[in-house]
Amino acid sequence: MRQIVALGSFKGAPGVTTLALALAAAWPAGGGARPVVVEADADGGDLAVRFGLPDSAGLLALAAGARHGGTERGAGELDGCAQVVAGSLRVVVAPTGGQQAAPCVTEVAACPSVLRGGGDSAGVVLLDLGRLGGAPSEELARLADRVVLVARGEADALAHVAARPEWLEAFRPELVVMGECRYSEADIAQALRMEQAQIHVLPQDARAAAALVGAAHMTPRRWGRAPLPRAAVALARQLNGADSEPGRGGLCGELAQLGSPAVPPQPPGWPAALPSVQRSEMP
């Protein structure tokens, strides 16, 4: 059966789709089946527009297969719904609008066999859940073998992760911080009460991100040396089964407030916009 890795964020657009595509490109070879990126964002997808693809053969068709509910049909349904982009990446695109996408996500969540396949199905499904919110995205996350939360590196973005302890406790997710971040992985881990091995700071790499959506060209040699693909390779290997020892680090500044039992007063000179709330007090 296929492995399922679910990716999503709690706020904004930190690059969930870009990360899903980067992981698909970096996933370790094995089993003869290439990864499939499935747009399962209840608010609608982006890839059909980005790549000029019809969405009728994507999540809409997968949801139609899910409605049949049969294992035999579901086992092969995913491959028939995937389209190839950026040379070799397989994607199942969602309708752009949430009015069509949300019912499709609900149908797929109710019939895991369209994602898992049968006993002879191999490979990995990378579920792009977009912004995590309603029941369908949580149901799909519960189906997944691994859950990856994506956030930007600012304190306010990390505060939204800290505000969802139920996700941190129930799913033991990996946290990927996309782009610029002035905090160390050890600092973030301690602030969020996670293990350092669960934290991954991926560098800002606009050219590689553009190449993933067909907006730029990179030679294989340059791609292999680019920061985002190199970081994605390391993350893909860990998601595929590697274990790491937890790390420890000291906290500083506003990060210390995210996981502390009490909120200290703001030191003089801090920007007023920085959050000064406890985990339990966050909206």
Rank of each mutant, 00 (worst) to 15 (best):
L149R: 04
A42M: 07
A206R: 06
A141I: 00
G119C: 13
Q99I: 10
E166H: 13
L228I: 04
V92C: 13
P112H: 06
G119M: 14
A13R: 13
A208H: 09
L239E: 10
N240I: 00
A135G: 03
P265A: 12
L60W: 00
F171C: 11
E195H: 06
A157P: 03
V16Y: 00
V148M: 07
T219L: 15
S56Y: 06
V49Y: 10
L47G: 11
A141G: 04
E245P: 01
A206G: 04
P103M: 08
E77V: 12
R164W: 04
A135P: 08
C181H: 00
A13T: 13
G117T: 10
G269A: 08
L132E: 02
L126N: 04
A135H: 09
L228M: 07
H68A: 14
V105K: 08
D205K: 05
A262Q: 09
L127K: 08
G74Y: 05
V176I: 07
P136M: 11
I199H: 00
L255G: 07
Y183A: 15
D187Y: 00
P265Y: 02
E39Y: 08
P268R: 03
R193S: 13
P54H: 01
V148R: 08
L192G: 10
F10C: 07
A210S: 12
A102W: 08
V125P: 07
G250A: 14
A272R: 10
A75L: 09
G12C: 06
Q196R: 14
P271H: 13
A163N: 11
P136Q: 10
L143P: 02
R152Y: 01
P14L: 05
P95C: 03
L47I: 14
E39M: 06
P35H: 12
R279F: 02
G8M: 08
E77N: 05
P267Q: 05
A86E: 11
D43K: 14
A208K: 06
L212V: 12
A141V: 02
E154T: 15
W270R: 15
R207F: 03
G117D: 01
L258S: 05
T96F: 14
G30T: 01
R142P: 05
M1K: 10
G241Q: 12
A29T: 14
A170D: 13
L274R: 12
E139H: 09
R73A: 14
D187I: 01
R34E: 10
E195L: 06
A26M: 08
G118C: 09
A197N: 07
E185Q: 12
V161F: 03
E154W: 05
P203S: 14
V37A: 03
L19D: 08
V125Q: 00
R116W: 00
A226L: 11
R90A: 02
L168T: 07
A209K: 04
D43S: 15
W27Q: 02
Q190R: 15
R207I: 12
E139P: 00
W223E: 14
P95G: 04
V150G: 08
T71Y: 03
A64K: 12
A144D: 04
Q238N: 15
A135F: 02
A197G: 14
A20Y: 05
E139D: 15
A63Q: 06
V105R: 07
E77I: 05
A216L: 10
D43R: 15
G80E: 06
P246W: 08
S184V: 01
G269F: 04
